[in-house]
Design a protein around this nucleic acid. Structure first.
Lengths: 372, 372
DNA sequence: CGTGTTGGTTCATCTGCTGATCTAACGGCT
DNA sequence: AGCCGTTAGATCAGCAGATGAACCAACACG
């Protein structure tokens, strides 16, 4: 139904914002004739609209913009105390959100999602035929082509075909992705990483998740294991990690690692409180946050040296964005990236609770709509 | 002249070895009719030949193989005491090799290459129309799309349009690539990494070079700086590096770093001699090689955690492949990769002197022929 | 020597892209 | 106001490449 060229047009506009037909011709490498037909077709389908005109030398060019209400995507995050659901439109805006109780029985999870998605779409007043698909964000190893959760410690799953199950329960095209990958895909399609050809996102929460976009596409790795920097050795011979090794980044910079170190020093385990203590001059708090920030900063510097991304996005589930942890992180990156490179933009944002579900919606958008 | 589908057929056969038309249909996603026409066309052009027949249930299938003598590629490495040149055929075999004196004046370098390439092709008896192009392997930062050497400390170049210059001097399509990238491209097309979707090559010589193939394509990074793991910080606060930082992998594991450490301990700077000393039980030698191998092993383990490649190829310019350095390297990788992953194959090979030029020829093959 | 099976070819047809040409919509100039 | 240069976009006949269906080819097996 949608040809490859159609998807490319939509993707380009999503990346760059509204573009005129002539600008699209330059990016796409097709003829004016084809572009004219493509645009007419996409407008007839309601996916594009003519936005503002740009006045220049001759006839003004008319920018074509995505029509946000022309397609919707459902996202579901299978992690946390409740599984978060959301509906996002083609512009990436969340139009509805909800949640279902967490569970570890695949069948009942799929059924609960099926019911709740039905309610959500109904309540949102969205024409069901406009819902292009649902994305699932799964903590663990995932075979995204087959839609199977290969292994998830958190869910206790092994080779669970959750994709087909949720597909049957919802009647929607279903796409399964690892949670860190879903996050970066969502940001790449709808967020701060929009349109970047090479970028990396790192989420600091209970664990440390990481996903890479390379050459404009998600890099999953040979066996889906890319982005496991949580278990990269940063401090050889350091603290033992639950993975069996020692000195993993996870034991140094994750939220629980900081909380543990704080509690052992008799300080509050809460990230924000710890930062406040550091701000008051508490030496132990300063040391703890410094160590953690430096560890993540070093890991990020190594990523930059290895991959030279355009943008690295760090999302913090806890703590202030301008606290000691974040400051030390930035300094350490700065100090450990080769001078003369240093082109990589480093952003630190807050990781809000629904970000995972929005990422999952982005997965659906990418696979069902933008063909990625 | 060659359509995209043609190049894809050639690429697939290069990756997987001879394939029948029916097998190609499966990989390519085109119809039998198109495949038949494609194969006929490529055979008429002399690029494919019918190789062995495979007998099965019904009519035997006929494998189509590349005709090595149907295309040739020139490679030139702009590094070392003399700039190495070679001619490789479509099978990746070197049919002729030569060299020109090293130099730092771009004009005379281009002219010397032009003359020598003419002689080489003449002497090799290759029809000039079958030479698809020349690749240049340049140590330094390269804009490969424009064919410009942006910056090379070794050559003392800044924004040198060496691509157009050599193109004019040779009359061949010219492609410029960073040396580490050329190396991995060559191995990906013709060597141990043939056909891999995700792999990394690390060359240990005067410096440490690294290139990544991701999703089947070279990843150059946002500003062409990918693979600079030589200046990733492995030992924070370690020895000062010429890049201005401290504790870079380059100061720990490169050939000169090992040689320096050895000389300071009153040991021979030669890698092989040092390994022999270690084998005889010399503690200082053992420590030096151990430190170096462990540093590179740690860096490789971090690459594996971050990228989950199918294959990592380490090429050593000096020293034995089964010496202490290599053994410690393997052990350290093993110990610092998360258990349960461990799918990445690690190979250690010798980096012979002409490997750089062969890599450059691979660049030409990839860009001129296989469209990569 | 017929039959089933799989590999590969042929051909009428069709789809989607293209270059050339035309119309539209402006700014600026007289 | 009217004309002209300029750029954006639409139209249309023609064409290259892909396709499905039917066909031929080459084997194993009985």
């Amino acid at each position: 139904m949608l040809t490859d060229a159609h998807a490319t047009v939509l993707r380009l506009i999503n990346q760059s914002g509204p573009l005129s037909r002539t600008e699209l011709v330059g990016h796409l490498g097709v003829s004016k004739a084809s572009m004219s037909a493509l645009a007419a077709d996409l407008m007839e389908r309601g996916m594009l609209t003519e936005a503002e005109a740009v006045y220049g030398g001759g006839r003004p060019s008319i920018r074509l913009a995505l029509q946000p209400s022309s397609a919707f995507f459902v996202g579901a995050s299978l992690a946390g105390e409740r599984f978060q659901l959301c509906v996002a439109d083609l512009g990436g805006d969340v139009t509805a959100a909800s949640s279902v109780p967490a569970g570890d029985d695949p069948r009942s999870v799929a059924e609960a999602i099926g019911r709740e998605v039905g309610r959500l779409i109904e309540a949102d007043g969205v024409d069901r035929s406009r819902v292009a698909g649902i994305g699932l964000s799964v903590p663990g190893l995932v075979d995204s082509a087959a839609g199977v959760c290969v292994r998830s410690t958190l869910l206790g799953w092994r080779d669970v075909p959750i994709g087909t199950m949720v597909g049957a329960a919802t009647g929607l095209a279903t796409f399964v992705e690892n949670d860190a990958n879903a996050l970066v895909l969502g940001q790449h399609l709808f967020g701060a990483l929009r349109g970047s050809r090479a970028c990396t996102m790192i989420a600091v929460a209970d664990g440390i998740g990481c996903g890479h976009i390379i050459n404009g596409e998600l890099h999953r790795g040979h066996r889906g294991g890319a982005g496991e920097i949580a278990h990269a050795t940063i401090a050889p011979g350091g603290l033992p990690c639950k993975c069996g090794k020692r000195g993993c980044l996870d034991t140094l910079a994750s939220t629980p690692a900081v909380a543990n170190a704080a509690r052992e020093a008799g300080l509050p385990g809460d990230f924000t409180a710890l930062d406040a203590a550091a701000a008051r001059g508490d030496q132990a708090a300063i040391t703890i946050l410094h160590h953690a920030g430096a560890a993540l900063g070093l890991a990020i510097a190594q990523q930059i040296q290895s991959l030279d991304p355009e943008h690295i996005l760090v999302a913090l589930a806890d703590g202030p964005l301008d606290g000691l942890y974040a400051r030390v992180l930035r300094q350490t990156v700065e100090a450990n990236v080769m001078p003369g490179g240093g082109q990589t933009q480093l952003s630190i944002i807050a990781l809000d609770a629904d970000a995972w579900a929005v990422g999952a919606a982005g997965v659906a958008a990418g696979r069902a709509f933008f063909r990625r």
